[in-house]
Write a protein that binds this DNA or RNA. Structure first.
Lengths: 182, 182
DNA sequence: GTCTATATGTTGATAGAC
DNA sequence: GTCTATCAACATATAGAC
């Protein structure tokens, strides 16, 4: 059911998807949605929460994968780019459907999202402290690094068989240039 | 009426917006929408077409603003970033609601979109030819440069009064690093 | 061109049988 | 938990008066 909703929301947007679309994709009756979820919005919240936690885990894991600032940042941008391509439909819902959440649920998710920024800022600061990165605007640069990864969900289509490894590799290489890695 | 639709689509998405929402925002009756547009989708197409042409003009103008590859690329990324912030709501509809267009209209817009890529590829090649840029993957790098600008529409909110000039400046500076400007 | 009124289908969500 | 059946509200779009 969750999978069906992810597919539908990613394809048509939350507003463009009916609970019937979701149910039909899951091979169930329209009423079956409401056995597990109180509302269409609750379904989106469940997806958004799961997706954000998975993406955050991915980013943190990459952060912890190395002690060297350059290798660390490279790993983070590679992994985060890769996650957005390997989980393209989920990632799209995660990144584009925040507006459809209730006020309370949105606040929850927004606070989760701040952590992505904090982790990336940490990685950039590590490199500056080690004398390896040359960055003036730490917050802005961290934002740009995340943008590079996140924007993949706008156009990347797994069905078109593009080489996601090569794209992740390029993004990671560009990231090191962006921080003035020396 | 177009303005009202841009606001509504940007805020709730195409699927999440009713023609009544649009009409009410424009201070008209629900039927008034159909005097000028055949359908809700035709309204989106008009917005999308106008938005894409304006954005493309902006990018081409910046391309023509300088002969020096570095200054040219800097101007392009600055202008394109700035456009996405100064026209945040329109830009959001332009970038996120392609999926809601009819097959024919979408094909129209997609062919327009290829031009953005071509212009950016041209700018990168100019710098390589002049010996100023060091880039292996021209297509991928051009894609990443556009990503940096486009992803602004996901989070930038004009109402929050952030310094859009500083953000455009940072993006432009990062762009020169990404192409290995020497 | 604008409106009111309305046709016709779809929507989110519920009731109650099995 | 799943279904069928259904409700009340809402959707897109049209008709016809002014």
């Amino acid at each position: 059911m969750l999978d069906a909703a992810v597919d539908a929301f990613a394809e048509r947007g939350f507003g463009g998807t009916s609970t019937r679309d979701v149910a039909v994709r899951a091979g169930r009756s329209p009423a079956a949605v409401y056995v597990h979820y109180d509302s269409k919005e609750a379904l989106l919240y469940a997806i958004s929460l799961e997706g954000h936690m998975a993406a955050l885990d991915c980013l943190k894991l990459a952060y912890a994968s190395s002690e060297d600032p350059a290798a660390r940042l490279h790993a983070m941008v590679f992994a985060f780019s890769d996650w957005h391509m390997e989980n393209a439909r989920l990632a799209r819902v995660v990144q584009y459907e925040l507006h459809a959440l209730s006020k309370v649920h949105r606040a929850d998710i927004v606070s989760l999202r701040r952590r992505f920024h904090r982790v990336m800022v940490g990685a950039v600061r590590d490199g500056i402290r080690a004398g390896q990165f040359q960055v003036d605007d730490v917050n802005g640069t961290a934002r740009a690094l995340l943008s590079l990864c996140i924007d993949l969900v706008r156009w990347f289509d797994p069905a078109r068989g593009r080489n996601s490894r090569a794209i992740a590799q390029l993004n990671a290489d560009l990231a090191l240039r962006m921080v003035g890695d020396v």
